[in-house]
Simulated assay, not measured.
Amino acid sequence: MKQILLTGATGGIGQAIARQLAGEGHSLVLVARNEEQLQALADSLPGQHQWLGMDLTRPDLSSALAQALAARDLHPQILINNAGSNELRTFEDSDWQSVEAQLRLNLLAPMALVHGLLPGLEPEAQIINIGSVLGEIGYPGYVAYGAAKGGLKRFSEALGRELKDRNIAVSYLAPRSTDTPLNSPNVVALNQALGNKVDKPEVVAKAVSLLIKRPKANMVLGFPEKLFTRINALLPVLVDGAVDKQLAVIKRHAKETL
């Protein structure tokens, strides 16, 4: 069994991943901002686990993580970049601070964490970056989020190629809509209006477990989302037409306060 550093551990997907991996016997280093929630989560899991209360948006994140791990003599073999945030809003109506915050947490924070861990990673280590189908398909209402997750995918792809000679696997996992407290009432209403399928967090957790057992560079969850990502890569004009039909509904839900 391996020592795994998991960010966003107290969120809906994070808790599901923690339960899945702890149940498989792995030792977890849980990372999030709320220390009370981290302690409660660690206590609820089978086995012995540690946690780090840390703001992932801090500018010195790379060095801060390395120092915190060294102080506790922790040497994770797997990093799961799960922490993230999104906002359903048109780009024009988005507050610029919110745009920057999404880019920092969804893209820069994972890059900083990898940068801090890389010097200590041994062969057969793994990095799993949890993105989104919205990083595969540019979608109205999620411009900043999609840009960040799309950047995370390209980061994962390039890093995986760069680390191949060190035998370190890098995976990008793209879930579709997932039922977590992160979803605002507007998001829930939009998914219902469009008939989008929504997965339980446990679906993502099982996919993470599978990637640990059998690493692969890219995994997209759900159908027809998986098909749409392939069509978007080859014939984006076809996806343009499908999204055009949804645009008025998306913009209405992006503006409403529910």
Rank of each mutant, 00 (worst) to 15 (best):
I4S: 12
I13P: 04
I13A: 05
E24Q: 15
R33T: 00
A40I: 03
L45R: 08
P46N: 10
L56A: 10
L61N: 07
L61P: 00
Q67K: 15
A70L: 09
A70M: 01
A71Q: 15
R72V: 00
H75M: 06
N82K: 10
A83Y: 06
G84T: 09
N86D: 13
N86I: 00
L88K: 06
L88H: 10
T90Q: 13
T90K: 08
F91N: 12
E92R: 14
E92S: 08
S94I: 02
W96D: 03
W96K: 02
E100A: 14
A101P: 02
A101Q: 14
Q102T: 05
R104H: 12
L107S: 11
P110C: 08
L113K: 05
L117Q: 05
P119V: 02
I127D: 04
S132L: 03
E136L: 11
I137P: 11
G141K: 04
V143C: 10
A147H: 07
A148V: 07
L152C: 08
L152I: 01
L152D: 09
F155W: 04
L159V: 00
R166K: 14
N167I: 00
I168H: 09
V170K: 13
Y172E: 05
T178Q: 02
T180G: 06
V187F: 09
A189Y: 09
L190R: 10
A193P: 06
G195R: 10
P201T: 07
A205P: 03
K206G: 05
A207G: 06
A207R: 05
S209Q: 11
S209Y: 00
R214D: 04
K216A: 06
M219A: 01
V220I: 14
G222V: 07
F223M: 11
K226W: 11
T229P: 07
R230P: 00
I231M: 06
A233Y: 12
V237C: 11
D240A: 05
G241I: 10
G241H: 13
K245L: 14
L247D: 07
A248N: 12
H253C: 08
E256R: 15
